[in-house]
């Protein structure tokens, strides 16, 4: 991927008084991805996002969105952004549709048709003329997404979007974000402290702790290159015997674990079967993001 990053966070720091909330953060976000921003509570995720969308001032450094500085060319930079920071906020005394109109008036060239298109995308067309005060949180979340994508932003920023959603709502949102990234090429930048969720949703995850970037990880959703060496577990009836036969790897419970590629895994299977060892299962061992995350952040202590 040699495409120009959608967002460039360049040496950004945020200090309030003597407290440093964000310390010299540098991060490029490539286009067309669902990009996760992961960190324990109080690590500076929300602060970073607030600086990205102009809600907070930047003490040091700069953030470029599509090449425009959020500091010196705010209107142009933020015109590429759709954002929901924390809860989706609405005017409760207006209807959903009036809320959409309110939002649409703030961006150039949005037609009535476009509003209805966005509303239908999130499946809100049947309730759109009801007052927002009658909506559930899940419905407000959907309307929030409809607003945020109304002007077809290059970058969609979502801060803890699944907070308070039920499992079905989370799943819908997740699927929807992936579609948005794949079909419309929108870059989605999403923060969360829920690891399992990020694992399902994101292409890449940046991990932040105490205001510092500690790692950037690409996640593969089972469609990783087939020729890589991966830890593979063979579930067998006599692991010790299998280890002796193969001469490599280690034993965990009733499994023999070897780092091999796909063809070698098949060969080992054949060898085991030939030797009269029953193979009950073969699977690739993936360490969950949670394991990796806890490893990196040392248990995720606050502060």
């Amino acid at each position: 991927m040699v495409q120009e990053p959608v967002v460039r966070i360049q040496g950004v720091s945020k200090k309030i008084g003597s407290k440093t909330l964000i310390d010299n953060l540098t991060l490029d976000i490539p286009p067309g991805q669902v990009y996760g921003f992961l960190g324990p509570n109080g690590s500076g995720k929300t602060t970073t996002i607030r600086m990205m969308v102009g809600l907070m001032s930047i003490t040091q450094g700069d953030i470029l969105i599509q090449g425009s500085s959020i500091k010196s060319d705010f209107e142009r930079a933020v015109s590429h952004v759709g954002a929901i920071v924390e809860n989706p906020e609405m005017y409760k005394f207006l209807t959903g549709y009036q809320n959409m109109v309110h939002y649409a008036r703030m961006s150039p060239g949005i037609t009535r048709e476009r509003i209805m298109e966005a509303v239908e995308r999130v499946g809100m067309q049947h309730r759109i003329h009801d007052k927002v005060k009658t909506y559930s949180l899940g419905m407000r979340q959907r309307l929030g997404v409809a607003q945020a994508i109304l002007h077809r932003p290059k970058l969609l920023v979502l801060d803890e979007p699944t907070n308070g959603l039920d499992p079905q709502g989370i799943r819908e949102l997740r699927d929807y974000l992936r579609i948005l990234a794949k079909e419309e090429g929108t870059t989605v930048f999403v923060s969360s402290h829920l690891l399992s969720e990020m694992e399902l949703m994101c292409d890449t995850v940046a991990v932040i702790q105490q205001g510092r970037l500690i790692d950037v990880k690409e996640l593969n959703h089972g469609d990783a290159p087939a020729d890589g060496q991966r830890e593979t577990a063979f579930d067998v009836d006599h692991p010790a015997q299998a280890l002796e036969l193969i001469g490599a790897g280690r034993i965990e419970g009733s499994s023999l674990i070897v780092a091999v590629d796909r063809s070698a895994a098949a060969a080992i299977n054949a060898k085991l079967v030939m030797a009269g060892i029953s193979v009950y299962g073969i699977r690739v061992v993936t360490r969950s993001l949670e394991d990796q995350f806890l490893e990196m952040t040392g248990g995720g202590h606050i502060g």
Binding site: V81, N87, E89
Partner: peptide, 14 residues
């Protein structure tokens, strides 16, 4: 109070 200030400030208006 409503939190909607965020809605206004993240749009392309100073």
């Amino acid at each position: 109070t409503w939190g909607t200030i965020k809605l206004l400030l993240v749009r392309p208006w100073t």
